[in-house]
Nucleic acid binder design. Structure first.
Length: 718
DNA sequence: GTTTAAGATCTTTTT
DNA sequence: GATCTTAAAC
C-alpha cells in the first residue's frame, strides 16, 4: 500500500481505528481518500476481517466511486466481503433476509415516489376529505414523518390538517402492507422496527458490523442516525466523515444536527479536522470560501490551500440555452486543444435534470462524446415502466400498483373504475377479482373481448410466477420483454428494453460468479434495480473518456479539472421554490459551493438572458451567487460585458438592496401571502423604493400596504 | 366500449 | 414541455 500521498493529519485519522470518530472535512481535503485508505489499512495492516466492516454512503454514485477506489488497493475477495453501499440498498438486503419477522414476504416490491403518489391519489378518491394538500405534498409530509421516526416536525400544520393526514397515513401504510410493498423511507423505518423489536436480530448484526464507516454524515436523517446508533452500541467503532457546508439533502430529511450532536450520541468522541484543500487552485478555494461565508448557519472552518493561483473563474452570459450549450461545446474543444486534456477531464453541472437535453443535442451535433450520470427515475421511460410493472407483479402477486398499471393498458378507464369500486366494496384486491373473473363477471359490465384479455394476462402472470424459483432473472426479464414485443408490436421496440436487458444480464452474470451462485432471483434483481443500479451500469471501456453531465447533487464527492456550472439564474439556481425561505437559499448556496469546489483547475459559470423552460420563454436575472463572488477571483467574459452589463449591474443593485434589507428579501413579486386582517393575496409590485407593496387580495381587490408596519401581520406561504 | 384529441396542471435535487 | 385527466368522436 502506498502512503506517500497522505499528510500527517490524514495518516493519524487512518491509523485511529477504535472508538467513535468524527472527521470534519472541508471540500477537497481528501475525505474519500481517508475513508478508502482507512478501510484498506484496517484489512491489510490491522488484519481486520472485511466481513466485519460496514461502509455506508448516500448516493449510488458515491457507493460505486468508493468501491472502485478500494478495489485499487485490496484484492477482490476481500472487497466482496465488505458490506458497502447506500443506506437504502444495504438495509433493504437485510430486510429481505429478515422480512419474516415483520410480516413481510421477502419478495416485497419497492415503491418509488410515483407509486406512493398513486396510492395516495386513490386513498383521496376513496375517502372524502376536506384537505388542501396535493398527493405530492402529502407524500412529502408522510416521508418527513417516517424519516423523523414517526414524529411531526412541522409546526406549520394545524390540528385539523394533522387529523386528516393521520387518517390518510393509516390507509397508506395499510395499502402498502397489503401490497407487500415498502417505500424508500420504509426501508429505514422498518429496519429500525426490526432492531427495536427483535434484539436477537439486532445482536446478530451488532456482532457482524464491528466497524462502521459513514461518508457524507451531514446528509443523514434521524432514521439513519438511529440505525447506526443501535448497530454501533456494542463496539462503538463508528467513524463518520462530513462537512456541514456540503449539506444539500435537507429535502430528504437530512439534519445537520446529526453532526453537531455526534459527541452527545457517543462517548469519548475523537474529533479531527481536515482543512487543507488539495484539489483546487487558490482562486477557486478563495472564491468558494467567500461564497459560503454568506450563510449564517455554519460551522466556521478555515479552508486553505498551498496550490497555485490558477486562472480566474470565468463568467459567460449567453443569449439562450442553446447558445449556452454551444459556448460550452466550443470552450471544451478549445481548452482541450490548448491544455492537451481529454474529454473525461470536463464536467457540466446543472441544477435540474431537464437542462441536460439541449446540451446533449448540441454535443451530438458537434460530435462531443458525453455521458449522462442520472438517477434511474429519469431514464425510466414509459416502456420500461410497463415492463417493470409485469416483472413486479410476477415477483410479488400482491403488488396492487403494478397490477393496476397492467390493467390500465388493457382496458378503459371506466372498466378500471368499476373494478376498483367492486374491489373497495368487497374488500378484495383487484388481482383477486380478475383472477376469479367468472364469479364477478355479472357485476362487471365488460365485454367478452376484455374478459378474454384479462384471462390471458392472469394466465401469463401465473405461469411466469411459477417459474421465478427455477429460472434466473435474466431469463425471466427476457421472456417478459419478448412477450410484450410479440403482443404489442406497435407499442414497443426491442431498443426500448435494451437498457434493462443489459442491466439484468450484467447483474445475473455477476451473481453467478459469486459463491453459491449469488442471488439470481427476479426479486433480487428488482431490488438492485430500484436501489443500486445506476446509469449504464457496466464498467465497459466505451464509457471512458467522455464529458460528464450531471446534476450538482450527483457531483458531490467527485472532481474534474474543468467544470462548467450552468444556468446560474435567479429562479433556476437558486431554484424558484427556494427564493422565499432563508434556510432554503442557504441550502442552494451550499449547493453552489459544492458545484464550485468540484473544479481542480478551472471553473466556468454560465447563465442565459432568455431561457425556454417549462413551456415558456423567460427573461432571466443572473444568479445572486454570481454577484456574491469576490471580484478578485473572477473574470467576466468580454462578450458578456457588452451584452449583459446592464443585467449584471441591475442584479447587483438588487442584490445589495436585498443584503441591506434582510426582511425585504423574503417578499417577491408573485409571492402569495396571508394578511391577518385582509386575508389571502398576491404581491403585484413594489413602490416607493420597495417600502410599499401593491397586493391584490382575493376578496378586497388591490391594496397598497406599507411593509414596515405590516411585517408581523403578513405570512408568506408560497 | 374504445380510441383519440383537447384541456389542465405541474414543473428541483435522490433513495 | 411533459404528463396526466377529462371530453368528445369513433
Amino acid at each position: 500500500m502506498v502512503w506517500i500521498d497522505l499528510n500527517n493529519s490524514q495518516k493519524k485519522i487512518i491509523e485511529t481505528i477504535n472508538g467513535p470518530i468524527l472527521v470534519i472535512a472541508g471540500a477537497g481535503s481528501g475525505k474519500t481518500r481517508v475513508i478508502t485508505y482507512r478501510i484498506a489499512y484496517m484489512i491489510q495492516k490491522m488484519g481486520i476481517n472485511p466481513y466485519n466492516i460496514l461502509a455506508l454512503t448516500f448516493t449510488r454514485k458515491s457507493a460505486r466511486e468508493m468501491k472502485f477506489r478500494i478495489s485499487n488497493m485490496i484484492n477482490s475477495k476481500n472487497l466482496e466481503k465488505i458490506t458497502l453501499g447506500t443506506f437504502h440498498s444495504i438495509f433493504s438486503s437485510i430486510l429481505r433476509k429478515e422480512s419474516h419477522w415483520l410480516g413481510y414476504n421477502q419478495n416485497y416490491t419497492i415503491y418509488d415516489q410515483k407509486d406512493s403518489e398513486n396510492v395516495i391519489k386513490k386513498i383521496l378518491e376513496d375517502i372524502n376529505l376536506d384537505i388542501s394538500f396535493s398527493p405530492k405534498e402529502i407524500r412529502r409530509i408522510i416521508s418527513e414523518y417516517k424519516n423523523n421516526l414517526c414524529s411531526i416536525n412541522n409546526g406549520k400544520l394545524n390540528r385539523k390538517e394533522i387529523e386528516c393526514l393521520s387518517k390518510i397515513y393509516k390507509f397508506y401504510i395499510q395499502k402498502c402492507h397489503q401490497s407487500n410493498a415498502l417505500d424508500f423511507d420504509d426501508i429505514l423505518l422498518k429496519t429500525n422496527h426490526l432492531f427495536y423489536k427483535f434484539p436477537n436480530v439486532l445482536n446478530k448484526y451488532r456482532n457482524k458490523f464491528k466497524y462502521i464507516l459513514i461518508d457524507e454524515y451531514q446528509d443523514t436523517n434521524l432514521s439513519q442516525n438511529k440505525i447506526i446508533k443501535n448497530l454501533a452500541f456494542k463496539h462503538q467503532n463508528v467513524f463518520v466523515v462530513g462537512d456541514d457546508a456540503q449539506s444539500i439533502y435537507s429535502f430528504r430529511g437530512a439534519n445537520i444536527s446529526n453532526i453537531l450532536n455526534f459527541h452527545l450520541d457517543y462517548k469519548n468522541v475523537k474529533i479531527f479536522r481536515l482543512e487543507q484543500n488539495y484539489r483546487s487552485t487558490y482562486h477557486i478555494v478563495k472564491a468558494s470560501n467567500n461564497i459560503i461565508s454568506f450563510n449564517k448557519n455554519q460551522i466556521i472552518k478555515k479552508i486553505w490551500t498551498d496550490n497555485e493561483k490558477g486562472e480566474k473563474i470565468e463568467i459567460y452570459c449567453a443569449f439562450s440555452e442553446k447558445e449556452e450549450a454551444q459556448y460550452i461545446a466550443s470552450s471544451i474543444l478549445s481548452i482541450k486543444k490548448n491544455k492537451k486534456l481529454h474529454y473525461e477531464n470536463f464536467a457540466i453541472l446543472y441544477r435540474a435534470n431537464i437542462q441536460s437535453h439541449i446540451i446533449e443535442y448540441i454535443f451530438k451535433e458537434k460530435k462531443i462524446p458525453y455521458k449522462i450520470h442520472g438517477s434511474i427515475s429519469f431514464e425510466k421511460r414509459k416502456e420500461i415502466r410497463d415492463l417493470l410493472a409485469y416483472l413486479r407483479v410476477i415477483s410479488n402477486l400482491d403488488d396492487e400498483e403494478s397490477f393496476l398499471r397492467i390493467l390500465k393498458k388493457e382496458s378503459s378507464q371506466k372498466t378500471i373504475r368499476i373494478i376498483l369500486d367492486l374491489s373497495k366494496k368487497r374488500k378484495i384486491k383487484t388481482y383477486g377479482i380478475i383472477k376469479n373473473l367468472e364469479s364477478y363477471y355479472h357485476l362487471l359490465m365488460i365485454k367478452k373481448k376484455t374478459k378474454d384479455k384479462f384471462k390471458q394476462i392472469i394466465y401469463t402472470i401465473e405461469k411466469l410466477h411459477s417459474e421465478i424459483k427455477i429460472k434466473d432473472s435474466f431469463t425471466i426479464v427476457k421472456n417478459v420483454a419478448n412477450l410484450l414485443l410479440e403482443k404489442y408490436p406497435k407499442n414497443y421496440k426491442i431498443e426500448d428494453f435494451k437498457p434493462i436487458l443489459d442491466n439484468v444480464l450484467y447483474h445475473t452474470n455477476e451473481q453467478k460468479k459469486l459463491k453459491n451462485n449469488g442471488d439470481v432471483s427476479l426479486s433480487g434483481f428488482l431490488q438492485k434495480y430500484y436501489l443500486e443500479i445506476n446509469e449504464n451500469s457496466n464498467n465497459d471501456d466505451n464509457e471512458k473518456n467522455k464529458v460528464s453531465l450531471m446534476t450538482v447533487h450527483l457531483s458531490k464527492g467527485l472532481e474534474f479539472p474543468i467544470v462548467f456550472i450552468t444556468g446560474l439564474e435567479e429562479n433556476l439556481f437558486p431554484s424558484k421554490s427556494s427564493l422565499n425561505k432563508q434556510s432554503k437559499i442557504e441550502e442552494e448556496r451550499r449547493l453552489f459551493y459544492v458545484a464550485l469546489t468540484r473544479a481542480k483547475k478551472k471553473a466556468i459559470l454560465t447563465y442565459t438572458k432568455y431561457r425556454f423552460l417549462w413551456g415558456e420563454k423567460r427573461k432571466n436575472y443572473p444568479s445572486r451567487f454570481i454577484n456574491e463572488l469576490n471580484e478578485n477571483y473572477i473574470k467576466i467574459h468580454n462578450h458578456t460585458k457588452n451584452f449583459s452589463q446592464n443585467l449584471l449591474e441591475k442584479s447587483k443593485i438588487n442584490f445589495l438592496e436585498k443584503k441591506n434589507n434582510n426582511e425585504q428579501r423574503k417578499f417577491q413579486v408573485g409571492s402569495k401571502i396571508f394578511h391577518k386582517k385582509f386575508g389571502i393575496g398576491i404581491i403585484l409590485d413594489f413602490q416607493n423604493e420597495n417600502k410599499i407593496a401593491l397586493i391584490k387580495f382575493q376578496n378586497l381587490g388591490k391594496k397598497r400596504i406599507l411593509l414596515e408596519l405590516a411585517l408581523d401581520k403578513i405570512i408568506i406561504y408560497s
